[in-house]
Amino acid sequence: MLFNSLDFLVFFPIVVMVYFALPFRFRWASNRIEPVVPGQPLPEPADDGERVLQGVALQRAEAGDLQTIVGNPAEPALDQIVAQFQSDQEVQRIDEVIAWARRQVEERFGPPEEGGYELHYQVYGRDGVMGALEPNRDKPAHELGILVFGVAPTAEMAEEVALTGTRQMFYARLPDVKGTAGGVAFPLDEVVRVSPAYRWTLNHALRVDDPLELFELHTTEVAAAPEREAAEVAS
């Protein structure tokens, strides 16, 4: 059967379908590689009897594009907070403001998974450092600093995502907010470009019988030049 034959056109999809229809452990070509599921512990190695299990760690990180922009919302609505200094309400408002800005970005680029972008808000003064792990999340400061990250396939798009995601916090129109001229204090109104965003795409353990089986070993004997050796002996 030739690679460019009609037979192959039938044969190949069938083989592929059968391969992926099989449970993972029956795929001989890949069953030595243990996938590491994000957020899950490494899979326990199977009991291979007397054999000593050894592994090689496979890790890879890949780049995307990343932009940051720094916005500094003093708060979502100043008079709201002055009027009722309720932290619960304040938390609610900042989340509402962020939700508003996200909706505006989605109107332009679609939902993140469809548009192929990411938009992250880090709320300093509330949980900017610890995120979901922060126990004092419901006791935010009266002034919050927000770091907005836009990540997209191209730098231009990431810039637009970050810019829209930041500016739209300024324009957020929420019920009961008295101020209508902007709910955010910007220290600067521009995007700060940063290096490409890397993320782990491979974090696996490959079982091997011999720790060196994946690596070629070259040994080179380096001898000292005779005249130099002689000179050193003389000195």
């Binding site: 995307g64 880090q122 610890m130």
Partner: peptide
């Protein structure tokens, strides 16, 4: 276990 792998976009630390 982390919320997301170190250095992923959105990782704060």
């Amino acid at each position: 276990l982390r919320e997301r792998p170190s250095g992923s976009p959105g990782d704060s630390d």
